[in-house]
């Protein structure tokens, strides 16, 4: 579904490459965590998939297309097969939840009846039914992220890219978002999630690709986040997350020791347990 072949990305001549000879394959339907310190190349990885950047060297294949050589006018059709979720939600503040989700379909020219049918369905799936008319400011962080996820998946993309989707959320809310992403993944959508959230990665036990200074240093099928000291040497053991644009930031909720906090009652990886909501895996969530 996503294939990086010896991909390097250099932003400025002479600078250290953001990605250095990276080769990785993501299969259809996989759930992959992308971990690494800030500046390790996670965001570059995602922006290459989105064709916001072109690789300096190597090839990037997304859904069977050579993204590096994709002409500009074909980029929109590539992006219609991708959904993106960000740490800061990026909802349009002057539109309601419904309008935000509908916007994604309107701007690609979907007919009105399709929008009328699909949007409520997706809002229900992400657990926002009854909140269609709320403005983003009237929602909690978790609800805003659900709305953003609804917008990302409303066009039934093959791939969902999530750039630290839980970075702004408290642990309980993060759990809900992860359950949602897991459900989306079970419908056949490939999910690539860049994250610093070690607890989530450790609980989910999915494939983990670790980047360090632009190189892949680890690729485990059922990986854990790894040791904080090693991945985030500047931060160390203290549970501190970084936020975009502000370097590192302390998240007060994480400062409280929570020894008993678990995402799930047992230590089983999420994938091996009962799905949160039993749905037969299919090509798209709406068809289940």
């Amino acid at each position: 579904m996503i294939r990086f072949q010896n991909v390097s990305k250099v932003y400025a001549r002479g600078a250290r490459p953001a990605l250095d000879d990276v080769s990785v394959d993501v299969e259809r339907g996989e759930f992959v965590f992308l971990v690494g310190a800030s500046g390790s190349g996670k965001s570059t990885f995602l922006s290459l998939v989105l064709r916001e950047q072109r690789p300096s060297r190597g090839h990037v294949y997304v859904a069977g297309r050579d993204v590096a050589n994709l002409s500009a006018w074909r980029v929109p059709s590539l992006r219609r097969q991708l959904g993106v979720v960000f740490q800061d939600f990026r909802l349009l503040q002057n539109k309601t939840v419904y309008e935000n989700v509908a916007f994604a379909l309107q701007v690609i020219g979907k007919p009105r009846h399709v929008i009328r049918d699909t949007v409520p369905e997706v809002l229900e799936m992400v657990g926002l039914n009854g909140k269609e008319k709320r403005m983003p400011t009237e929602l909690s962080g978790g609800e805003q992220q659900r709305a953003a996820i609804a917008r990302a998946i409303v066009n039934r993309p093959q791939i969902l890219l999530a750039d630290e989707p839980t970075g702004n959320l408290d642990p309980t809310t993060s759990l809900g978002i992860m359950r949602l992403l897991d459900r989306i993944n079970r419908t056949g959508t490939t999910v690539v999630m860049a994250t610093h959230d070690d607890e989530i990665v450790n609980e989910m036990r999915r494939r983990v690709v670790e980047l360090r200074t632009g190189e892949i240093v680890r690729d485990e099928a059922r990986g854990v986040y790894g040791e904080r000291e090693r991945i985030l040497p500047d931060v160390g053991r203290s549970p501190v997350l970084d936020a975009p644009g502000s370097g590192t930031r302390v998240v007060p909720a994480r400062l409280v020791p929570q020894p008993e906090r678990r995402l799930l009652p047992d230590r089983q990886p999420l994938a091996d347990r009962q799905p949160l909501e039993r749905r037969p895996a299919g090509p798209a969530f709406g068809e289940a």
């Binding site: 992006r79 219609r80 991708l82 990026r90 503040q93 916007f103 701007v107 690609i108 066009n155």
Partner: peptide, 13 residues
């Protein structure tokens, strides 16, 4: 913000 979302969801140029 609007145009950024439009680009990301694949609206044509």
């Amino acid at each position: 913000k609007e145009t950024e979302i439009m680009r990301l969801v694949g609206a044509s140029n």
